[in-house]
Structures are given as structure tokens and as C-alpha cells.
């Protein structure tokens, strides 16, 4: 379920990301980017958020059983939370290494699976946290300072 809430914490957007249709991967990131543009956020910041969000969306589609992306926009920062329904990452330290990848051939045909996604998200964000329980879930939390 997609939702759009405004409360005291700011604007909270939540989008479901599936794992079955590669052709629509990027739609959620595109929607998020459009909202950020409408809020007149600095273009360079929008670009950093967009790259990180898109990389995350690709990861959810390629590696997980589906999940969601939640964006919280406050006066001073943009927070992005991505959580999936598993299967989780065995070794998150290894997953963070440039060039390490477990992506399928299908993902590689699309131009992904180079083992650059997680390091790139870290590069783009001001704060980056990855948490995963193998067999259960992976959760990323990124913060972007305005």
C-alpha cells in the first residue's frame, strides 16, 4: 500500500516495492524524485537521494522477497528507510565491499549486479546504516542533510 502522510515529523511517504517485475523497477524512485522536486529541494540533494533510492529499489527487486521504501522529509533532513521481507544478508560487511555481488544473471543483463550498489548508497548519503538478519530481513537507513 502506498501512502502519503503529513504530521508533526514532516512528510512521510511509503511505497511498496515488488520483486516480480523488473520492467517497473525505478517507478518508486521516480515518484519520490517528483515529490522532492515539487518541494523545491536543492537539485544536488535530490540527485543524491534519487541515486541512493534507486539503487535500493533495484536491490529490493533483485535480491529480496519484496519490501517497502519510506521517505521522511523534515525541515533539516531527508530520511530514507528501506526494509524488505528477506531473505537477509549473510555477511553485511562483505556485502559492503566494492565488487562483491550475489546478483543473478537476469540482474546483470539489466546492467546491475556489479557490487557497487551498497557502497554507492553509502557514498551518496550523509549517514548510512545497514542491518540484516539472515532468513528474515534487511533494513537500510539513510540520512541526507539539507
Amino acid at each position: 500500500m502506498n501512502s502519503f502522510i503529513t504530521n508533526n515529523d514532516g512528510i512521510v511517504l511509503k511505497y511498496v516495492v515488488g520483486n516480480d517485475d523488473f520492467s517497473i523497477v525505478g517507478e518508486v524512485s521516480s515518484k519520490i524524485k517528483n515529490v522532492l522536486k515539487q518541494l523545491n529541494i536543492d537539485n544536488k540533494l535530490i540527485r543524491r537521494v534519487s541515486i541512493a533510492t534507486y539503487e535500493a529499489e533495484v536491490n529490493v527487486a533483485i535480491h529480496s522477497l519484496g519490501g517497502y521504501i519510506e521517505v521522511t522529509i523534515t525541515e533539516n533532513e531527508i530520511k530514507i528507510k528501506i526494509r524488505d521481507n528477506g531473505p537477509g544478508i549473510k555477511d553485511t560487511k562483505l556485502a559492503m565491499e566494492k565488487g562483491y555481488s550475489t546478483a543473478s544473471n537476469k540482474a546483470r543483463e539489466l546492467g546491475f549486479g556489479a557490487g557497487m550498489g551498497l557502497p554507492n548508497m553509502k557514498r551518496c548519503s550523509d549517514e548510512f546504516k545497514i542491518e540484516s538478519k539472515f532468513g528474515e530481513y534487511t533494513e537500510l537507513n539513510m540520512k541526507f542533510i539539507k
Binding site: 517497473i24 523497477v25 521516480s30 546492467g111 550498489g117
Partner: peptide, 27 residues
Amino acid sequence: LMSDVLAFVNEDTALLTGLVNNQVIRT
């Protein structure tokens, strides 16, 4: 490799590629 485009391209740049799927446009 769109992963590399996302990792290295940060200016207003033309992209040359042999991939022709939606992900090129999204990237």
C-alpha cells in the same frame, strides 16, 4: 553497466550504452 553509471556520473553528461531496457532511462 548501469551500476557504474550511477556510481561515477555526477555531471550533465551524455550516456553511451548498448543496453536498451527501461533501466537505462531510469538511471
